[in-house]
């Protein structure tokens, strides 16, 4: 029986076929908003302002993208978004990986208290930290630096890193670091040379998610970066909207550029992201 026959002439084949059709319909519905954004971003001004709503660009143009990319303010915001992402990632890795190791390999006194602090700080609303942090940062002159928002964002990413990475460290066989110890490695050396490389899949997850936390942040960046020229793309949306008015093609190109790095990471690193989201959210 060839593949075609299998597809249509067996019960399980037909079932598989119809499940696939239904799943494609679901995918189309869920991805349609993103397509919608993309297609508007390639429309000419005339078509954008036209009376008839079109579902694909009849006059295809990249002008809306160029309008953004040639704008100095836009490039500055784009740079700030990257800084936000990388700084958040850096802080998260420096604090999160060691803590995950400590929590995964040992059961020290106060273990429950540590775990509780990590779990609770992941659940807290940013609103609760916003006003007091603003006042504190303003006192110690940290407002208007790239550190102000990223310190706050990382406070959400570090617990995520600990909770997600901990099972990875737990599953590394004890014999592995014992062997390293016998070979004369100290605690620090065996951590860096043996343990960290052993959990690199988990670390990729943390790298991606913490970068995205920084990249996607709106609330902290807009509040703590008091100078608009230091704000990332997310925090300048309203500013550019008032600049573009109802030129939705330019606004949607703005949104598309903001989404692009996320989609690219998602395509190439999907398994790390999906696995991490599940592990970080509900623990088994």
């Amino acid at each position: 029986m060839n593949k075609f026959q299998y597809l249509f002439h067996t019960r399980s084949g037909r079932k598989n076929f119809w499940c696939c059709v239904l799943s494609v319909v679901i995918a189309v519905i869920f991805l349609f908003p993103l397509y919608w954004m993309l297609q508007i971003s390639f429309k000419s001004d005339m078509e954008t302002f036209g009376k008839v709503l079109t579902y694909f660009p009849h006059q295809f143009t990249i002008d809306p993208w160029l309008a953004n990319l040639k704008d100095k303010d836009f490039i500055a915001s784009l740079k700030n978004s990257f800084i936000n992402g990388f700084l958040t990632m850096f802080i998260t890795l420096v604090f999160g990986i060691p803590a995950a190791y400590g929590m995964g390999r040992y059961k020290p006194k106060g273990f429950k208290a540590f775990l509780l602090v990590f779990l609770v700080s992941q659940m807290l609303p940013a609103s609760l930290m916003l006003t007091p942090m603003y006042l504190t940062f303003s006192k110690i002159h940290l407002l208007g630096t790239y550190f102000a928002p990223t310190i706050a964002i990382a406070a959400g990413s570090i617990p995520f890193a600990v909770i997600t990475l901990r099972p990875y460290f737990k599953s590394v066989p004890v014999s592995l670091d014992e062997a390293a110890r016998i070979d004369g490695c100290g605690v620090a050396k065996s951590f860096f040379l043996v343990m960290v490389p052993a959990v690199k899949t988990g670390i990729v997850t943390i790298v991606v998610i913490s970068f995205l936390n920084g990249w996607n942040d709106l609330m902290f960046s807009m509040t703590f970066n008091v100078k608009p020229e230091m704000r990332p793309l997310t925090a300048n949306i309203h500013k550019f909207q008032s600049k573009y008015g109802t030129k939705w093609n330019c606004i949607m190109a703005y949104g598309a550029i903001l989404v692009l790095p996320v989609v690219i990471m998602f395509i190439f690193l999907q398994k790390y992201i999906v696995g991490g989201l599940t592990a970080g959210a509900v623990k088994e």
């Binding site: 799943s23 679901i26 995918a27 869920f30 991805l31 908003p33 993103l34 954004m37 995205l212 990249w215 996607n216 709106l218 997310t234 949306i237 949104g255 903001l258 989404v259 996320v262 989609v263 990471m265 998602f266 999907q270 992201i273 999906v274 989201l277």
Partner: peptide
Amino acid sequence: RGMILVSYMIPMSV
């Protein structure tokens, strides 16, 4: 099922 998760990853502001 992986693909439709992308809406969860993009910035909420977008």
